[in-house]
Amino acid sequence: MRNIFLFIRRYSTLLLFLLLQGFSIYLIVTYNRYHNAVFSNTATQVTGKVNEQYNRVEDYFRLKKTNDSLWKANERLYNKLRENFQIPDTLSKIVIDSLKIDSLEQHRKYRYLQATVIENSVTTQSNYIVLGRGKNQELKEGMGLIDVNNGVVGIITTVSSDYAVVMSMLHKDSHISGKLLKSGETGTLTWDGKQPNIVAISGIPKSAKVAKGDTVITSGFSTTFPKGLLVGFVTEVIPEKSTNNYTIKLKTAADFYSLQYVYVIDNKQQEAIKQLLDKATQQSK
C-alpha cells in the first residue's frame, strides 16, 4: 500500500498528464450528436452569448449581400402567386374539396421558422452552425435547416434554452438523403472534409444517367426535410472501381461561407411517424 502512494507521489505529473489526455480523448470519442447534453448545453449558452455580441457588429458588413439574396427569394415567391396564373374556363368537372381552408392547421405538415446564424465555421472536419433561437423559441433536435434560397444546410443536433447547434452538411458524420431530380435515383450525401461547398452523393447505380450540371434535391424519405429542396449541382461523376455505383461530386446550392438568415423546418408529423416506426421495430423483435 505504501509503495502505491510512493509511486503516485513520484509520478504525479505523469499521472496527471495521462489523466488529462485520457479525459480529452474520452470527450472526443463520446461526444456525438445526442450525448453529452450537460456539457454542450452550458457551453452553448455561454459561447452563444459571446458570439451574439460579435454577430451584431458583423451583420452590418453583409447587409448588401443579404438584401440581394432576400430580394431574389422574394421574386421567386411572387412568381408563385395564384394571381399570376390564369386557366381558361373550359373545365366542367365538379370537384368537391373536402379540405377547404385548413384553419385549425390540423393537416399542416411543415412549418418554416426563421432564425439567424450567430456562428458558422467551414474550416474544420466537423463544422457546426449556431442559431440564435432555442428550445424556448420552439426549436427541437432533429429539425432541418435551409438557407433563404431553399438550399439544404444541416440538421439541428443540440438545443439549449436560447440557442441551437446545427450539424452542418459539411460534417464528417452528416448523412442526408438526396435524389437526382432527372432520373430519381436516391443516395446519401456525405462530405470528405476537404473543400467547403463541395459534397458527394454516394450509392447512385451506374445505370443512372448523370451529366454535369444536373440538379440534386432532397428525397423526402426522411422526416427532416420535405421532398424537393435544392441540395446542389453535379460537378463531377466518378465511377467506383469496386462497386456498381458512382460517386458524384456536387456544388452545394447553399453558400456555407455567407450564411446569415436561415429557415428551420418543423415537421409537425415527425413525432407520429417516429412513434409508428418504434412500434414496428418493437413488434419485429
Binding site: F23, S24, I25, L27, I28, Y31, V50, T124, S126, V130
Partner: peptide
Amino acid sequence: QMIIAFALGLTLDSFRHNPGFHAAACVL
C-alpha cells in the same frame, strides 16, 4: 501548467463545439 493548458484548450473547443481536440494538444 497542464491544468491551465487544459482549460485553454477546452475553452477553444467549446467555441468550436468539438470538445477534446485542442484540450489534448494543449496538455501535451
